[in-house]
Design a protein around this nucleic acid. Structure first.
Lengths: 208, 208, 208, 208
DNA sequence: TATGAATGAGACTTCATTCAT
DNA sequence: AATGAATGAAGTCTCATTCAT
């Protein structure tokens, strides 16, 4: 019988280790931000020695960037559950907003860390911040596309303004919920937000 | 004027030193957050040795709390410039929003640091976070009062929802401007926000 | 009416301040030893600023030396309560031992700090250590004198040995009581010790 | 022999490093006590950087506790050299006392540091103190056992008293020798002590 | 007779990272 | 695919002490 060492740790599995490290890092950096995330803390939480983290990631900056990337994917997977595509345009928009709200409540780490990175002004900008801003750019793009599809009459200036407003509102409502742990329903607030933006767009589209 | 010895130690002046320390700390912590603010950096920026900082503040936590307090006062002073009290209610509300936007653009450190503190989840909550949330509570209160004055028909639930939405929008727009250094006019966006909230309130007040 | 400042602090009184400082320093240094006694801690306990301590004492070393001196006097005052001089020689010796035991239990700071200082080997010997050893030399001397008086036949070698043994026993029993807060009666142990030393001396005196 | 690069970093050897750290720490803490032992001093004496000390020991408290443990073992090894088991009971007891005296003279660090720790009253009791008191409890136990074996007639009260007295005397004599570097023979004093305790026990055993 | 303010040195500890195995 | 051991730099904070008032 092959004995190996009796304490677990079966044949080393790189993918699994990487996952464990990221799991730990997502949790910690989502709570403490960039500087607050120490390699030692990640090591302690995932059970792998610090040097192993450096086998999987070039440095702390690289790790945080990977965290942003992976937590974005996790969050995206939560958002893009199909959702019913039926109903009036307003209903569809509202349903989508509710979907985003639910996903943010379920996996807040992505946006929490992202906003912390975004607010900081560090001499050497962390990769993770760049990644976050890119990813956020996609959300911007999609929101803009949706507005253009729903209200083709809107000029580009109006689209840009409304898009910015839409995303800013989402960020702000997210922050509110993070601050007031007991906050009312995030979903309801997102729905209200969607309605207000929709109305504003409709009005602007009717009368430039 | 008696200058005394040119190398340091001019007749000790606690108030002035405290101010220098806070000036440096506001700037640094507004850019780097709690963990990113090192006493050594503050010391370097204000010219006083680290040990002197500890004469004026019990510890780093105490310093950051003082930073929040003072930067709030600075910001408040910028907001509360009288502002024209004339015009329709909507005009007055819009003017106030513009005022807030201008003050946030002029002295963003308060809200930048405050939001970073608010987003973090540190095992031992920093005093500064508590202070920020208190101060923020005041803004909430005042916004609610304004809504109640303008639309006495609104029930408390509606007031609460609209207040939350109003402040969340402000936070979100602020974040947007912080992220896009080149962002369009913060004032315009705040005015738009004010209008949308006003309209929503008006509609809710008309038909519960 | 002379008002002065309303908060106490009547006309500064040097003697009283010095006493407060020493009171605090005796307590702290009796618990923490030389290095463990910080000027800041003494300042906090006595309520006077650190700089005031330096007005009364040249430096920390000087303060600790003064502590030893004063706590010795305090202790001596407790020991030298007359005590009944009647009875057999053994009874008188035993009574004196009991007296010492009682005083050590009542004001242990002197010997506690003294022993800590005595055990340390610091590059620059603290004044306080020197003072303690001197004072201790007196106890040695007196104990020797008492033995010589009681047993004139003892040669100097025997006196020296018995004296050393007597004092070492006292030190050891004191340490025992300090370690076992709940220890039995220190007085009883001192009486036993006195008896054993007395017997030993008697035997040695009878048969060199 | 492959020597590799002459500047540091020869194939890492944890056990050896740990030993070097402890060697340095035993020496320093045996001379200066808990507070007097600075990590920087240990680092300088053992040649490893301070941060390396923290690889091997959680913190200073942990290091001092390890010092007590290891110096106890060192001392025990010195005591337990067999020693001639022949002769009368008194001779055997005396021989053992001499053995203890010799080992204390040879490796005094254990008891020196231990007594310093024992005398201090620190708000948060150092682990090392706890360890010392435990280890000391063993000595107490063994001494008691020996008395019970030699004088089965002694009641438990008498055993307890004599044991305490025996150990207190040993502590006191040790302190005496530490204070008077030039002190006479520690061995002789321990032998005398052993004899006196033996006699006292014999007398108590004969007539309760 | 004090004391508010300051200060350089040094305390303990954690940091991100490296490297030989 | 890892990891035990190490390390210099930097972290927060306390130290004993000074000095102008």
């Amino acid at each position: 019988m092959t004995r190996g060492n009796p304490e677990r740790k079966q044949r080393a599995n790189g993918v699994e280790s990487r996952r464990r490290i990221l799991d730990a890092a997502v949790e910690i950096s989502g709570e403490r931000g960039y500087e607050g995330t120490s390699i030692a803390a990640v090591s302690a939480k995932c059970g792998l020695p610090a040097s192993s983290i450096y086998w999987h990631f070039k440095d702390k900056d690289d790790l945080i960037a990977a965290v942003i990337e992976r937590s974005f994917e996790t969050w995206l997977a939560a958002v893009e559950l199909p959702g019913d595509e039926a109903g009036t345009p307003l209903e569809r928009v509202t349903a989508m907003a509710a979907n985003v709200a639910r996903s943010l409540a379920a996996t807040p780490e992505f946006l929490r860390l992202g906003l912390m990175l975004a607010l900081e002004r560090r001499p050497k900008e962390p990769q993770g911040r760049t990644v976050f801003l890119q990813v956020r750019g996609i959300a911007h793009q999609r929101t803009g596309d949706m507005l253009r599809t729903l209200f083709p009459e809107l000029d580009e200036d109006a689209v840009r303004t409304l898009t910015t407003y839409a995303i800013a509102g989402a960020d702000g409502l997210f922050v509110h919920q993070e601050i007031n742990a007991d906050a009312g329903d995030l979903v309801e607030m997102f729905e209200l937000h969607a309605r207000l933006v929709y109305d504003a767009a409709a009005r602007l589209a009717a009368r430039p």
